[in-house]
Design a binder for these strands. Structure first.
Lengths: 193, 193
DNA sequence: AAGGAGAATTGACATTTGTTAAGAATGTGT
DNA sequence: ACACATTCTTAACAAATGTCAATTCTCCTT
């Protein structure tokens, strides 16, 4: 269960965490299983945990008069949480739920802080995570303002093809900011090319 | 010139930086003046500096076959840089230039690191900056995928009305991901309401 | 102050995307 | 395995946004 986290830490820092340190890390995390559709976070709650996905798939979305808008999708080795709510302890405007049955590792902000402060490798991991996240968001903004729906879909096919296997099309459409009908049409059009 | 930076540090950390510490901080920064349209960063270059805007306005944009796509706008007390290029030393795909004559304070990543490591107040400032930036980007993504062009404009009017005073409409349109013509129509429609 | 460049507006039309509704296909739980 | 849910597709139409071209407006530069 924890092995995936160890691999993640080593991979994104290019150095090896010691067994002793990793033991301390694992003690800060709590394993949890979510069944499909189970909520990890509901609108109005404070997001107390950050979740490292060991197995499964999750999504983060707002719900505005019946319409779901997916701001983020995650699978194995991704972190899920509403960072704003998690760091500032404010009520979240988002929902996060399991798209598939999931095994995740949960950690609170309070348990994370001492790890970051005492272990350079963890501080480094967080820095890298934040950086990657920030770069990905910037790219998504750029795509949203500069590309057509079709080009955004093509970009997703290129950069995260695995999402198309793991998430139903209506969620992919929402993630791209279009309706399921539009995505269906776009796919049809691309198929003939 | 440096006073704006001192105020910024104090404001976003709710504690006061000492004169001695601030002296060290100012030594890490270099003041620079940009005239309107002058480039701070051009596509293909590495973004060596982060710029704290003391006076003036700047924009960050990509240029894809003649079309400018503005990913970020900044005025007094904002930071401008391509964070990806700045932190990873990779060539940037963006341009940053002065929309008005600007006075800015420049700092390299190498000069920033020791400040962050030796002064908790600076580390805190960076954390707060990153957090605010990250929250703003998340909101922008959410707006892009869930709102119409009109609603995105209304949101901008509410959250950053000063931008409408400082940037020409074609830049506002680009920032919102629409054409200047569309923005003009939206404004006309709203005026009659 | 005049001339010129850039910026904003407007209109006609094209294209993209959304909406609604229906049916087909697929998947899921018991 | 069955029945029910959900998901996906399709079509016709509506609405939003883009494109192109012409005109007016604004403001900079000299």
């Amino acid at each position: 269960m924890y092995e995936a986290l160890r691999i993640y830490i080593n991979k994104y820092t290019s150095s090896e965490i010691s067994d002793a340190d990793f033991e301390i890390v694992t003690n800060a995390f709590t394993p949890k299983h979510f069944i499909k559709r189970q909520f990890f976070l509901q609108e109005g709650e404070v997001c107390k945990y950050s979740a490292f996905i060991v197995k499964g798939a999750m999504r983060q979305y707002s719900l505005v008069n019946g319409v779901e808008n997916i701001v983020s999708l995650g699978i194995e080795n991704w972190w899920m949480s509403d960072r704003e709510s998690y760091a500032m302890l404010t009520p979240s405007q988002y929902n996060i739920d399991a798209v598939e049955d999931c095994d995740v590792l949960l950690v609170t902000y309070e348990k994370m802080v001492p790890l970051v402060e005492s272990m350079p490798i963890i501080a480094r991991m967080i820095t890298m995570m934040d950086q990657r996240h920030s770069i990905a968001m910037q790219k998504r903004i750029h795509n949203a303002i500069s590309l057509t729906a079709e080009d955004r879909f093509l970009d997703l096919m290129k950069t995260n093809p695995v999402f198309l296997q793991r998430f139903p099309q209506n969620m992919i459409a929402s993630y791209l900011g279009i309706t399921p009908e539009s995505l269906s049409r776009i796919r049809k059009k691309l198929a003939t090319k």
